[in-house]
Measured scan of single mutants.
Amino acid sequence: RELEAFAERFKQRRIKLGVTQADVGAALANLKIPGVGSLSQSTICRFESLTLSHNNMIALKPVLQAWLEEAE
């Protein structure tokens, strides 16, 4: 499924970029996305391991996609 594929791609790109899960969480606050502050390292970890609820995964995907586009 698309969500699982994105989570895997996100993790691979993050590692290639040399960015930690905690760095991603902190950097999200800098994107100034309305309603989104920083996220914890454990939230990023749970996203990558697909252990968040489906609704949370869907909500976080565009936020993490925005970070990925900014980071690349």
Rank of each mutant, 00 (worst) to 15 (best):
I15A: 10
V63D: 02
S49W: 00
T43N: 01
L3C: 00
L3S: 04
A7F: 02
S38T: 14
S53Y: 10
K32D: 11
P34G: 05
P62I: 01
R13K: 13
Q12D: 14
V63R: 08
N30C: 06
A5M: 15
S49I: 02
R9T: 14
S40W: 04
E8V: 12
V24N: 01
A5E: 08
E69I: 10
L3H: 05
I33N: 04
L50K: 13
L68W: 02
L64S: 01
A66G: 13
H54P: 15
A29H: 11
F47C: 00
P34D: 10
Q65W: 02
E72V: 06
A26V: 11
Q65T: 02
Q21G: 04
F47H: 00
M57Q: 04
A59L: 04
E69K: 12
D23H: 13
I15K: 12
R9G: 07
F6W: 07
Q21N: 15
G18Y: 00
R9H: 13
V63Q: 04
E70G: 10
G37W: 02
A22G: 11
T43D: 05
L28F: 06
T43L: 13
P62D: 04
L17M: 10
A27L: 06
G35K: 05
I58T: 12
R14Q: 03
E72W: 05
V63W: 13
G18P: 02
S38F: 14
K11H: 10
K16E: 15
L68S: 03
G37T: 13
A7N: 00
N56W: 15
G18D: 03
S49Q: 12
F47T: 00
A26S: 13
L17R: 03
E48S: 00
D23G: 06
A27M: 08
I33V: 03
R14E: 00
K16V: 10
M57L: 12
G25H: 06
L52P: 00
K32G: 08
S49L: 08
K61M: 14
E69D: 12
A22W: 05
V19H: 13
I15S: 08
I15G: 04
I58A: 06
E72I: 05
V24L: 09
G18S: 03
I58P: 00
I15R: 03
R13E: 11
A71N: 12
V63P: 08
A26M: 10
A29F: 10
S40T: 07
A26Y: 09
R9K: 14
K32I: 12
G35I: 02
C45K: 15
L68H: 01
K11V: 08
K11Q: 09
I15E: 11
T51L: 09
K61Q: 07
N30A: 12
A5G: 12
R9S: 13
L31F: 12
A26P: 03
L3M: 06
L28R: 00
S42L: 12
G37D: 10
E2H: 07
V63I: 14
V24K: 00
N56D: 04
V24Y: 00
K32E: 14
T43K: 08
L68T: 03
V19N: 08
N56V: 12
L68K: 00
G37Y: 14
G37P: 11
F47V: 01
E2F: 02
R14I: 02
K16R: 13
W67T: 02
L31Y: 07
A27K: 09
T51I: 02
S38N: 14
E72F: 02
E8G: 10
T43F: 04
R14N: 00
V24D: 02
S49Y: 07
A29G: 13
N56I: 08
R1W: 08
A26C: 11
E72T: 07
K32R: 12
G25W: 05
L60A: 05
S42Y: 11
L68C: 06
S49N: 13
S40Q: 05
R46H: 11
D23I: 01
A22V: 05
Q21T: 07
L31T: 10
K32P: 08
L17F: 04
L50F: 04
L39A: 12
A26T: 10
T20P: 06
N56C: 12
V19P: 01
R1E: 10
G18E: 03
T51K: 15
R46Y: 10
K61T: 11
A7Y: 01
L3F: 10
R46W: 05
V63E: 03
I15D: 07
K16L: 12
S49D: 15
A71V: 11
K32L: 09
K16W: 07
L52M: 03
E69S: 11
A71R: 13
R13F: 06
A71W: 05
R9N: 13
M57A: 08
A27W: 07
V19Q: 08
F10V: 01
L17N: 03
L60F: 05
V36R: 05
G25A: 15
E72A: 05
V24I: 09
T20K: 08
E70W: 05
A66T: 11
E48V: 03
Q21P: 06
I15Q: 05
Q65K: 13
L60P: 00
R1L: 09
A29T: 06
P34W: 02
G25E: 12
V36Q: 06
L31W: 13
P34R: 04
R9A: 12
G35S: 07
N56P: 02
I58H: 12
R9C: 09
A26G: 08
L39P: 14
A7H: 01
A27V: 09
T43V: 12
K16G: 09
A27E: 09
E2G: 15
E70T: 11
V36W: 10
S53K: 07
L60R: 01
A26W: 08
R14T: 00
K32H: 10
Q65S: 09
F6Y: 09
R46P: 00
L68R: 00
S38M: 13
L64D: 01
R1D: 04
K16A: 14
G25K: 05
A22Y: 10
P34H: 09
I44L: 00
L68E: 03
R46L: 08
E70H: 13
A26L: 12
S42M: 10
A66V: 04
Q21C: 06
F6I: 08
I58Y: 09
V63C: 11
L28I: 11
A29D: 06
K11T: 06
K61I: 09
T43G: 02
L31D: 13
A27R: 04
R14F: 00
V19S: 09
K11F: 03
P34C: 09
S53G: 11
R1M: 11
A5S: 13
T20D: 02
L64I: 04
T43S: 07
V36G: 06
E4I: 15
E70D: 09
T43A: 08
K11S: 07
R9V: 13
L39S: 10
F10S: 10
K32C: 11
E4W: 07
W67F: 11
R14C: 00
K11P: 01
Q21Y: 09
I33Q: 04
H54R: 15
E8F: 13
R1A: 05
A5V: 12
T51Q: 11
K16F: 05
V36S: 11
G35C: 03
P62N: 04
S49C: 09
R9Y: 13
R1K: 07
L68D: 01
A71H: 15
T43Q: 10
W67Q: 00
S49P: 00
I33S: 01
G35M: 10
V24T: 02
S42H: 12
T51S: 14
S40K: 02
F10W: 05
T20G: 06
Q12C: 05
M57I: 05
G25R: 07
V36H: 11
L39V: 14
C45N: 13
K16T: 11
G37C: 02
A71Y: 11
Q12R: 08
T51P: 00
E48A: 00
A5T: 13
K61F: 04
S42F: 07
P62T: 07
R14S: 00
R9P: 02
R46T: 02
K32F: 08
G37L: 08
K16D: 09
